[in-house]
Every structure is written in structure tokens, then in C-alpha cells.
């Protein structure tokens, strides 16, 4: 396991003002993330998972505290993958993948080569000319991953990327992500509602509570070796999540 810290959130507070009242989503919240880890964020709906991702991406401003990156330019070099509307519907798949390269003014021929290679590696080589709405949900998420990875990001931010997929497709994409991550070790933050997914993918699982969000569990599932230990971890997470839902009610 890599222990070099790369992102530090120190005593941050953040929230939203909807005009009528202020909603405090984070209050005195701290978290440190290690380089190369695939971090999973679990938590009840509305607890602030997406907000946390957006804070790290620099989309949601902090009200207080410090967000520190230990690598230069890491925030600008982060890519997002959403569950929905994660590709430009007016561009075909290869143009979608090329979008970030074009902005970086990479020459046309090279751009096409890189995009084709990337699409090939996510298994979409023969769908270059298709538009997003002509692909299945799983293929779209593959394309979206290709779009994010082709620009060689230092940080990958994924907000329930496989949340809308059927179990089989979801497993395929989890395998794809695992393969990619074991190859390039991009620091990843991955939000999910699925405990299975969390345990399968995570180098580290962080379970958040309802607002204001606190860290309830911070686990490295790879340290749980035996089947029994894994089983125990699963029940623990399940119970914790369940309790959060009960508190909410």
C-alpha cells in the first residue's frame, strides 16, 4: 500500500444557501487521501458524497478549512465521470474522447490515434462513429472512462458511475476499472451505494454519516484476508448504512 499523502482536507466546512436557509453539509470535516489509492465513498443519500467530490474538483467552494494538494496542478488535472449526462450528446464517441485532447491543442492525427487506442482498450473500437444515445448504458460509461483517461489525469473522480447499470454490465465495468487501476494506479475517488462494489473495488472504504457528514468507518478491505473477515466487514458496513437510514427516518 502506498502511504504518500496526495490530498488533504483539513477541518473543512461547506454548504449551500438555497435562498431561504443555509444547509451545512460539512462542518469541521477532515480527510487525507493517499496517492494511487482507489478510494470508495459510501454513505446514505444526501449525506454529501457528491458535494465532497465537487469540493475536491474545485466546483463547490469551501466556507472554511483547507484543501491541499501535494502534487502541483492536481486539481486541474482531475477528471469527472458521472452517472448521467457524462458525454456530450452532440458529438460522436470518438469526438467525445478527443474533446480534452483538442483543448490541449494536440495535433489532429495524434489526437485520433490516442482516442482510437483508448477506445480500443475499453472495448469500443467499433463504435467510434456512434452517438451517445445510440449506445447502451454500459458502453456510454466505457466511453466516458475513455474520455477521462485519454488526457492522462492525475485524479479520477467518479460519482456513482455504474449506478444505473444492470448487475452483469456493472460487473464487467468494475473489472475494467480494476484492470485500468492496477495498470496506471491513478488516484481515484469512487462514490457508490453498493457495499458489494465498495468491497470489490476499494483499496480504502470511507463510510460517511448524515449531515453534517462525519467519517463513520475508514477501512482497508485488502487487510481483511479470510472469507470470514470479509463477511464480517460486509455485515458491519451494512449495519452502519442501515442505521443511517433509520436515523434519517
Amino acid at each position: 500500500m502506498n502511504n504518500q499523502n496526495i490530498i488533504e482536507l483539513k477541518n473543512i466546512s461547506a454548504g449551500f444557501d438555497n435562498g431561504k436557509q443555509y444547509l451545512q453539509v460539512f462542518d469541521d470535516f477532515s480527510l487525507t487521501l493517499g496517492k494511487g489509492d482507489l478510494n470508495i465513498i459510501l454513505g446514505p443519500t444526501g449525506c454529501g458524497k457528491s458535494t465532497l467530490l465537487n469540493i475536491i474538483a474545485g466546483i463547490v467552494p469551501l466556507q472554511g478549512g483547507i484543501l491541499e494538494f501535494k502534487e502541483p496542478n492536481l486539481q486541474n488535472n482531475s477528471r469527472l465521470v458521472f452517472q448521467h449526462y457524462t458525454l456530450f450528446p452532440w458529438l460522436n464517441i470518438i469526438k467525445n474522447v478527443e474533446f480534452g485532447l483538442k483543448i490541449r491543442k494536440i495535433e489532429k492525427i495524434r489526437r485520433r490515434e490516442m482516442a482510437e487506442e483508448m477506445l480500443n482498450s475499453v472495448g469500443l473500437a467499433s463504435f467510434e462513429k456512434h452517438f451517445p444515445h445510440e449506445l447502451s448504458g454500459g458502453m456510454r460509461q466505457r466511453a466516458s472512462i475513455a474520455q477521462a483517461l485519454v488526457t492522462e489525469p492525475g485524479l479520477l473522480l467518479m460519482d456513482e458511475p455504474f449506478g444505473a447499470l444492470d448487475d452483469f454490465t456493472r460487473m464487467e465495468l468494475q473489472d475494467l476499472l480494476q484492470k485500468i487501476h492496477s495498470k496506471n494506479n491513478i488516484t481515484t475517488i469512487f462514490i457508490t451505494h453498493s457495499i458489494d462494489e465498495a468491497i470489490k473495488l476499494g483499496d480504502r472504504i470511507i463510510l460517511l454519516s448524515k449531515q453534517p457528514a462525519k467519517i463513520l468507518e475508514d477501512i482497508r478491505p485488502t487487510e481483511q484476508q479470510t472469507a470470514n473477515e470479509k463477511e464480517a466487514l460486509y455485515s458491519k458496513l451494512r449495519q452502519q448504512l442501515h442505521q443511517q437510514f433509520l436515523i434519517h427516518k
Binding site: 474538483a57 466546483i59 449526462y85 458529438l91 480534452g100 488526457t151
Partner: peptide, 24 residues
């Protein structure tokens, strides 16, 4: 999402206007 996507892919204001706002 489209704006965020473009911005995190490195688009500046002008690129967002012509490559996201306009086609969208």
C-alpha cells in the same frame, strides 16, 4: 454536467461558450 465536464477537461470560458453552450 456538460459545463462541468468541459471545464474539468480543461476548457476555458471561450471554449465552453462555443463548444458547449452553442451546440447544447
Amino acid at each position: 454536467n456538460y459545463i462541468t465536464l468541459a471545464e474539468t477537461l480543461g476548457a476555458d470560458k471561450k471554449t465552453v461558450v462555443f463548444r458547449v453552450f452553442l451546440p447544447a
